[in-house]
Protein backbone atom coordinates (compact mmCIF):
# COMPACT_ATOMS: atom_id res chain seq x y z
CA UNK A 1 0.00 0.00 0.00
CA UNK A 2 1.64 3.26 -1.09
CA UNK A 3 2.29 5.88 1.60
CA UNK A 4 -0.09 8.84 1.42
CA UNK A 5 1.43 12.31 1.66
CA UNK A 6 -1.11 13.30 4.28
CA UNK A 7 -3.02 11.34 6.92
CA UNK A 8 -6.60 10.48 6.00
CA UNK A 9 -9.20 12.03 8.26
CA UNK A 10 -10.57 9.38 10.58
CA UNK A 11 -13.80 7.77 9.49
CA UNK A 12 -16.81 8.98 11.48
CA UNK A 13 -17.98 6.51 14.08
CA UNK A 14 -21.52 5.18 14.01
CA UNK A 15 -22.80 7.59 16.72
CA UNK A 16 -21.28 10.49 14.78
CA UNK A 17 -23.13 9.48 11.61
CA UNK A 18 -26.35 9.21 13.58
CA UNK A 19 -25.67 12.59 15.17
CA UNK A 20 -25.25 14.19 11.75
CA UNK A 21 -28.54 12.73 10.56
CA UNK A 22 -30.33 13.99 13.67
CA UNK A 23 -28.73 17.42 13.34
CA UNK A 24 -29.89 17.69 9.73
CA UNK A 25 -33.43 16.79 10.84
CA UNK A 26 -33.34 19.44 13.57
CA UNK A 27 -31.99 22.13 11.25
CA UNK A 28 -34.55 21.38 8.52
CA UNK A 29 -37.29 21.45 11.15
CA UNK A 30 -36.12 24.78 12.54
CA UNK A 31 -35.87 26.33 9.07
CA UNK A 32 -39.43 25.17 8.36
CA UNK A 33 -40.59 26.90 11.54
CA UNK A 34 -39.14 30.20 10.38
CA UNK A 35 -39.77 30.04 6.65
CA UNK A 36 -43.06 28.15 6.18
CA UNK A 37 -45.90 30.25 4.83
CA UNK A 38 -48.51 28.11 6.55
CA UNK A 39 -48.64 28.36 10.33
CA UNK A 40 -49.54 24.69 10.75
CA UNK A 41 -46.47 23.71 8.73
CA UNK A 42 -44.40 25.80 11.10
CA UNK A 43 -45.85 23.81 13.99
CA UNK A 44 -44.93 20.55 12.23
CA UNK A 45 -41.41 21.83 11.69
CA UNK A 46 -41.23 22.54 15.39
CA UNK A 47 -42.18 18.93 16.11
CA UNK A 48 -39.35 17.74 13.86
CA UNK A 49 -36.95 20.05 15.70
CA UNK A 50 -38.15 18.65 19.04
CA UNK A 51 -37.50 15.13 17.79
CA UNK A 52 -34.03 16.24 16.74
CA UNK A 53 -33.35 17.59 20.22
CA UNK A 54 -34.54 14.31 21.75
CA UNK A 55 -32.22 12.43 19.39
CA UNK A 56 -29.26 14.58 20.45
CA UNK A 57 -29.97 13.80 24.12
CA UNK A 58 -30.11 10.09 23.36
CA UNK A 59 -26.85 10.15 21.40
CA UNK A 60 -25.34 11.90 24.42
CA UNK A 61 -26.52 8.93 26.49
CA UNK A 62 -29.09 10.99 28.42
CA UNK A 63 -31.94 8.71 27.48
CA UNK A 64 -34.26 9.72 30.30
CA UNK A 65 -34.14 13.36 29.24
CA UNK A 66 -34.53 12.34 25.61
CA UNK A 67 -37.70 10.39 26.31
CA UNK A 68 -39.02 13.18 28.55
CA UNK A 69 -38.39 15.60 25.70
CA UNK A 70 -40.60 13.56 23.38
CA UNK A 71 -43.24 13.09 26.06
CA UNK A 72 -43.52 16.72 27.11
CA UNK A 73 -42.60 18.66 23.99
CA UNK A 74 -43.94 16.46 21.20
CA UNK A 75 -46.84 15.03 23.17
CA UNK A 76 -48.06 18.02 25.11
CA UNK A 77 -46.52 21.29 24.00
CA UNK A 78 -46.82 20.88 20.25
CA UNK A 79 -50.43 19.71 20.67
CA UNK A 80 -51.01 22.82 22.74
CA UNK A 81 -49.40 25.00 20.09
CA UNK A 82 -51.59 23.43 17.41
CA UNK A 83 -54.68 24.04 19.53
CA UNK A 84 -53.57 27.62 20.07
CA UNK A 85 -53.17 28.11 16.31
CA UNK A 86 -56.62 26.72 15.69
CA UNK A 87 -58.17 28.82 18.44
CA UNK A 88 -56.94 32.08 16.97
CA UNK A 89 -59.19 32.47 14.00
CA UNK A 90 -57.31 35.13 12.11
CA UNK A 91 -54.17 33.06 11.82
CA UNK A 92 -55.85 30.19 10.07
CA UNK A 93 -56.81 32.02 6.94
CA UNK A 94 -54.56 31.93 3.93
CA UNK A 95 -50.80 32.01 4.00
CA UNK A 96 -49.07 34.25 6.44
CA UNK A 97 -45.91 35.84 5.20
CA UNK A 98 -42.85 34.70 7.10
CA UNK A 99 -41.37 38.17 6.74
CA UNK A 100 -42.36 41.33 8.47
CA UNK A 101 -40.71 44.61 9.38
CA UNK A 102 -38.70 43.09 12.18
CA UNK A 103 -37.12 40.37 10.04
CA UNK A 104 -33.94 42.38 9.49
CA UNK A 105 -33.44 43.01 13.20
CA UNK A 106 -34.19 39.39 13.96
CA UNK A 107 -31.62 38.24 11.42
CA UNK A 108 -28.95 40.49 12.95
CA UNK A 109 -29.71 39.29 16.49
CA UNK A 110 -29.70 35.67 15.37
CA UNK A 111 -26.35 36.10 13.65
CA UNK A 112 -24.89 37.78 16.75
CA UNK A 113 -26.18 35.01 18.99
CA UNK A 114 -24.64 32.47 16.65
CA UNK A 115 -21.26 34.22 16.79
CA UNK A 116 -21.38 34.44 20.60
CA UNK A 117 -22.33 30.77 20.90
CA UNK A 118 -19.55 29.67 18.57
CA UNK A 119 -17.03 31.79 20.51
CA UNK A 120 -18.25 30.30 23.78
CA UNK A 121 -18.09 26.77 22.45
CA UNK A 122 -14.53 27.23 21.24
CA UNK A 123 -13.50 28.61 24.62
CA UNK A 124 -14.96 25.89 26.80
CA UNK A 125 -12.62 23.02 27.72
CA UNK A 126 -14.93 20.19 26.65
CA UNK A 127 -14.54 16.97 28.60
CA UNK A 128 -13.23 14.05 26.61
CA UNK A 129 -15.67 11.28 25.85
CA UNK A 130 -15.31 8.77 28.65
CA UNK A 131 -16.24 5.16 28.80
CA UNK A 132 -19.72 4.39 27.45
CA UNK A 133 -22.27 4.23 30.25
CA UNK A 134 -23.11 0.65 31.10
CA UNK A 135 -25.60 1.10 33.93
CA UNK A 136 -28.06 3.71 32.73
CA UNK A 137 -30.57 2.61 35.31
CA UNK A 138 -28.35 3.81 38.15
CA UNK A 139 -28.33 7.29 36.61
CA UNK A 140 -32.13 7.44 36.58
CA UNK A 141 -32.25 6.11 40.14
CA UNK A 142 -29.69 8.75 41.16
CA UNK A 143 -31.86 11.41 39.62
CA UNK A 144 -34.88 10.20 41.57
CA UNK A 145 -32.81 10.03 44.77
CA UNK A 146 -31.58 13.59 44.28
CA UNK A 147 -35.12 14.92 43.75
CA UNK A 148 -36.21 13.93 47.24
CA UNK A 149 -32.92 14.47 49.08
CA UNK A 150 -30.54 17.28 48.10
CA UNK A 151 -33.10 19.05 45.92
CA UNK A 152 -36.20 18.43 47.97
CA UNK A 153 -36.99 22.16 48.40
CA UNK A 154 -36.82 22.99 44.66
CA UNK A 155 -38.75 19.80 44.01
CA UNK A 156 -41.65 20.90 46.21
CA UNK A 157 -41.45 24.45 44.87
CA UNK A 158 -41.85 22.91 41.43
CA UNK A 159 -45.05 21.23 42.60
CA UNK A 160 -46.27 24.64 43.78
CA UNK A 161 -45.33 26.13 40.41
CA UNK A 162 -47.32 23.45 38.61
CA UNK A 163 -50.27 24.16 40.91
CA UNK A 164 -50.09 27.86 40.10
CA UNK A 165 -49.87 27.03 36.40
CA UNK A 166 -52.96 24.87 36.75
CA UNK A 167 -54.86 27.68 38.45
CA UNK A 168 -53.69 30.11 35.77
CA UNK A 169 -54.81 27.74 33.04
CA UNK A 170 -58.35 27.83 34.38
CA UNK A 171 -58.41 31.60 34.52
CA UNK A 172 -57.07 31.91 30.98
CA UNK A 173 -58.94 29.26 29.12
CA UNK A 174 -62.37 29.23 30.73
CA UNK A 175 -65.17 30.40 28.51
CA UNK A 176 -66.27 33.86 29.54
CA UNK A 177 -69.86 33.70 30.57
Amino acid sequence: MPELPFPLPPLPTAPQVVFIMIAVLAVIGSLTVVLARNLFHSALGLVAAFFGAAGVYIVAEAEFIGVSQVLVYVGAISTLITFAIMLTRGMMFGATSPRNRQSGTAAIITALTFVVLVALMRGIPWPQAGEPITDGQAIIAGLGFAFVNQYVIPFLLLAMLLLVALAGAIMLARDRK
Partner: peptide, 29 residues
Protein backbone atom coordinates in the same frame (compact mmCIF):
# COMPACT_ATOMS: atom_id res chain seq x y z
CA UNK B 1 -62.54 28.44 15.40
CA UNK B 2 -62.55 25.79 18.09
CA UNK B 3 -63.76 25.78 21.63
CA UNK B 4 -61.36 26.84 24.34
CA UNK B 5 -62.15 23.61 26.18
CA UNK B 6 -59.68 21.69 24.03
CA UNK B 7 -56.93 24.11 24.94
CA UNK B 8 -57.72 23.70 28.64
CA UNK B 9 -57.53 19.91 28.37
CA UNK B 10 -54.16 20.31 26.67
CA UNK B 11 -52.89 22.53 29.49
CA UNK B 12 -54.05 20.17 32.24
CA UNK B 13 -52.47 17.28 30.36
CA UNK B 14 -49.16 19.13 30.09
CA UNK B 15 -49.03 19.74 33.83
CA UNK B 16 -49.82 16.14 34.72
CA UNK B 17 -47.33 14.93 32.12
CA UNK B 18 -44.56 16.91 33.81
CA UNK B 19 -45.62 15.48 37.15
CA UNK B 20 -45.44 11.93 35.83
CA UNK B 21 -41.96 12.51 34.48
CA UNK B 22 -40.75 13.63 37.88
CA UNK B 23 -42.36 10.65 39.56
CA UNK B 24 -40.80 7.91 37.43
CA UNK B 25 -37.17 8.38 38.57
CA UNK B 26 -38.43 8.38 42.15
CA UNK B 27 -40.11 5.04 41.50
CA UNK B 28 -36.83 3.64 40.15
CA UNK B 29 -34.97 4.90 43.24
Amino acid sequence: QFRAQYYLIGLIFLIFDVEVIFLFPIAVA
